[in-house]
Design a protein around this nucleic acid. Sequence first.
DNA 1: GTGTTTAACTTAACGGTGTTAACCAAGAGG
DNA 2: CCTCTTGGTTAACACCGTTAAGTTAAACAC
Lengths: 207, 207
Amino acid sequence: MVNAGSDGTLRRRILDAARHLLVAEGYNSLSMRKIARAIGCSPTAIYLYFQNKDALVHTLIDEGFRLLYEELREEAGRHDDPVVRLEALWRRYVRFGRRNPEYYEIMFMLHPERMERYPPEKYRRARRGLELAIQTLEEGRRQGIFAIEDPRVTASAAWAALHGAVALLLARRLDIRIDPEDFIETTIRTLLRGVLAPDVLLQLASK
Amino acid sequence: MVNAGSDGTLRRRILDAARHLLVAEGYNSLSMRKIARAIGCSPTAIYLYFQNKDALVHTLIDEGFRLLYEELREEAGRHDDPVVRLEALWRRYVRFGRRNPEYYEIMFMLHPERMERYPPEKYRRARRGLELAIQTLEEGRRQGIFAIEDPRVTASAAWAALHGAVALLLARRLDIRIDPEDFIETTIRTLLRGVLAPDVLLQLASK
DNA sequence: GTGTTTAACTTAACGGTGTTAACCAAGAGG
DNA sequence: CCTCTTGGTTAACACCGTTAAGTTAAACAC
């Protein structure tokens, strides 16, 4: 049979089925054969449109990065004050991870070995979100609000911290006695206090 | 053949081979059949000593947690000043992760679905390391050195931040222009500034 | 209108995986 | 000497990603 099932190019339908399966059953049980079964084609048909499973997953990862970046860009455009903007960006990142756990997992939590094949050229696109934080940090530093050395390194360190928080949250590795909201709040406030200039911090604390 | 190959109980030899394979080839290519081949027994023999592959990996994870805790406990015993001790604990954690990437991966970076089966009772043992940080934070808070609310939550947030740093480092997801040492240094200094009381911070900055 | 090419897809198969069921050989106890 | 238990084995099932070869239908040349 040719183009079995509903309409739309097979490539598009493969991606839709893959994303659906990913969300429904998680990355671990995502298999070529299941995808094929879901759309009523043979497993090998997928290889006409994707070099292999990794390539397919990478396409999903691209989708995820685009989604995340659009959220961050929109958020960044809403705030003028560097401190407010930075905090908003951070919160939005965490929100994205918690709301899209399956995307987040394939984007950031896949095994290193598997991800080394993810083309480095695409990493640059993926880092556009970080650039928003870097610019904000740089801007605030010029105004004497942030006491940091290298904005790029600081932004990366903060990103790593948020990633760790999201990762542990998604993996449910936190002590059950800890409230997730409290945990996130503490993470962000600690980071913020870590980058703010001491005098600004005192000023904030006094009022 | 009975008890093929060298001496030692088969159970012990399975664990040794598994750990060796894990370190040599990474978690992804760790398979029951490979372990069996390495020690010259049949794949099914492993099931006489471990319920399944997960149970085997969990035993390796236990080893890892014991190793990590011993390092942290030894480190904690070497420093009296809470600030110094906290920083030393944090550095030691990062060092463990970077020196034992395979252990770190199965301990903290395995897929959530797989890890949910890891018995919650064992998590408590795994958290003993965190208790060291909690106690240190509590101690420093009583002395007015740390401006934090809940030591348990703060310790968890800091742990998450360090985990994120290690995870991104091991997964080689950092911008290539960023020096890993610089990155770690910034992470730890930011965290420290985030938990220190503002006046202590100013005092530190002035001298 | 017929012959040929090409695009889209299929079936069969290879080598790998975790895991289970059934079997077997050697030693221990009566 | 016979039975039971211990500590393994072999064979098999159902899955996986991937490749090679085959098929079928549409498109095009003449």
